[in-house]
Structure formats: structure tokens, C-alpha cells
Design a protein around this nucleic acid. Structure first.
Lengths: 177, 177
DNA sequence: TATCGTAGAGAACGACCGTTCTCCGGAGCA
DNA sequence: TGCTCCGGAGAACGGTCGTTCTCTACGATA
């Protein structure tokens, strides 16, 4: 396997689980088994590695969500079924983009940018699932809100996913009339 | 002990705006005008200062929200009017508790705890505004989701607040029947 | 005035971090 | 065998951070 991929796999796990500033480049080296010299050949700085981590996470996260929804009838309701499953995954720790933005958004414009792009991509995807813009905004708010609740208070994670899903259903049927 | 208050005011501003790990104890000293020695007399470690910052933020944030809602008829809809105003404030950078949790929740159990307590307190307050538990969960999700959207994509901040408020109204009237 | 306690300024300390550099062993080739 | 090139291991470097310590000035008390 290519070095960049091993690095991104290790860095992704560490950054997401511990927070970005809590992970040193040497931790990434140790977890990936790639030498420090090659690490800096693949990614010229930690910021570059962080941005690459977020871009990879965006691809995988969106890919997982969209394929799940496609396999479950393509309705917006399926989004919340996927959320409930995600929240129950081992090592779930909220939205990697929100966490990265909170930690580094004020310092690194590149990190802020990639987080913003991810949220816009998510909104665009949701917009394709429903009839109008207001509903898309509301779905985005429900998804992010449930994710926050699930992160901070894991005991209420599935409760939050279901409450959000029920809200989405209610809003959609109300809009149909 | 006015020193503690000066320290908390300076630390609160810095921690919230820049992120916690990006702020050194010396930055807090410089911004507060309190000597380092006294800083460590008031708060024996950075973690203690961070916890005190979050507790103070909880009090003030909840106080601002609840008094606004009380002055605007005491309905849950007013929550979203308050949100819209908050999002437009200078230096708004999302929920300080979510940001702190994302940055330090994996490292410091004390920080995770105080963030969790804040979210529970908020949910309890919302529970008092509406008729049942499901609706309270949904309001919490809408509040946190709108806050996330407003942080990551400030151009859509008021749009997010209004979409969330409209969703809350729709859910409440649907529940009345 | 002499003495003591206190508080502030900031140097010092040890740890760690991002990044670069040095050194060494082995693979490829003549 | 001898030479060269490459990559890995990890030391080194400059900087920052949390925390503690030193030194000095000053105010109160007898």
C-alpha cells in the first residue's frame, strides 16, 4: 500500500479520536510505520496532513451516507437511520469537521475552508433529497444537531437520532400538503 | 477577589475566540494584567482555569437565553430569536462547550463533564418550555444544529436560525393536535 | 530605622512539538 | 570487491508551553 494512504489512515484515526493538536507528527509516524522523512515528503507540513485528512474524511463520510441512503429507498428519512448506526460505532466522537473547525478554524484558513466545503456539500446532497431549500436547511440543522448531542452525551445518542428523524418526517409531511 | 474575575474575563475571551490549546497561560496573564504567580494562586492549573471558564460561560449563556425568552413571552419560539441575535454578535464562534469538548473531551474528563452538564441543563430548560420529552429533544437538536451551521458557515447563520425556528414552530403546532 | 512578609516581573526549567539533519546499512551495478 | 545512491532511524534544533523559582521593591509594624 502506498505511503500516503497508510499515513492518512493512521492520522485520520488519531486526529479524530484525540483531537488534532493532541497528536504529534511522531505519533503519526509511529502509528503508520512510515518514516518521518517520507512523511514530510508526502505532506510538507502538519497543516497539509490535516487538510488531506479532512478531504479524505469528507469523501468517505459522504460516500458512506449516500450509498446507505441509496440502498434504503433514497428518502431523506434514511439519513437518520444512517446517523443512528454511525453514532453507535466504536470510537464515534462527533463530526470531525466541526471538531477541526473549533480547534483550528480561528488559526488556519485552510482548515476552515475545507470544513465549510464539507458542510456545503452535505447541504447540496440533502437538497437533492427534498423538495425545497428551507427543508434542506432544516435537515442539515437536524443532522448536525443530532451529531453534537450524540458526541457530548453518548447515552442520548440514539435518542437524538430518532428525535431528529421523527422531526424530519413531520416537517416533510407537513410540507407536502 | 477581583483577580479571579479579571482572569476569567480575559481567559474566556481568548479561549472562545482562538480555541483553548492555542492560548497560553502567558497570554492570559498579558490580557488580564494579573501576574502569573497570582494566576496560579487562583487556578492551580490550566485545566482548572478551563473548567472555571466553562462554568462561568454556562451561567452567563443560560442567563442571557432565559431572560431573553422570559421577556419575549416565554415561548420556545423566542429561543430562536435569541439564537439569531447571538449568531450576529461580533466574535461569535459557535458553542464554546462543543468546541471545548472536541478539543479536550478525549483528554480531560473534567472538561467533558462540564460540557455534558451544560447540554443537560439546556435540555432541562427547553423541557420546561414545551409539552413533552420528544419535543424537548428536538428543540435541543435544532439549537445545536443551527449553532454549528452558523459557526462553520457564517453567511448562512441567520438563515439557519430562521430555518430552525420555523421547524420548531411546525413541530409544536403539529404536536398540539 | 530595622525587619519582615508579600507581591510582581520575569528568568528558569523540563517537557514536548514541528521540522530538519546526520549517520549508517543495504541494494544495485560495474 | 568497491562505489554510489537511497531510505530509515533517530538525534538535533529552535520554539513554545505549563509551571516553578528567584530577585527585587515596597508597605506595614515595632
Amino acid at each position: 500500500m502506498e505511503h500516503a494512504e497508510r499515513l492518512l489512515a493512521a492520522a485520520g484515526e488519531l486526529f479524530y479520536r484525540r483531537g488534532i493538536r493532541a497528536v504529534g507528527m511522531d505519533d503519526v509516524r509511529a502509528a503508520s510505520g512510515v518514516s518521518l522523512k517520507r512523511l514530510y515528503q508526502c505532506f510538507p507540513s502538519k497543516e497539509a496532513l490535516v487538510v488531506a485528512y479532512l478531504e479524505r474524511r469528507d469523501e468517505r463520510w459522504m460516500g458512506s451516507l449516500t450509498s446507505y441512503v441509496a440502498e434504503h429507498g433514497g428518502s431523506a428519512e434514511a439519513v437518520f437511520g444512517w446517523l443512528e448506526r454511525w453514532f453507535a460505532e466504536d470510537g464515534f466522537r462527533g463530526c470531525g469537521f466541526v471538531n477541526a473547525y473549533g480547534e483550528l478554524g480561528a488559526t488556519s484558513e485552510a482548515v476552515a475552508e475545507v470544513a465549510r466545503r464539507h458542510k456545503r456539500r452535505l447541504r447540496d446532497y440533502l437538497r437533492g433529497l427534498v423538495a425545497d431549500d428551507l427543508l434542506a436547511d432544516q435537515l442539515l440543522v437536524l443532522v448536525d444537531g443530532a451529531t453534537v448531542t450524540a458526541m457530548v452525551d453518548p447515552e442520548r445518542a440514539t435518542q437524538a437520532a430518532r428525535a431528529a428523524g421523527q422531526a424530519a418526517r413531520a416537517l416533510m409531511t407537513a410540507r407536502e400538503k
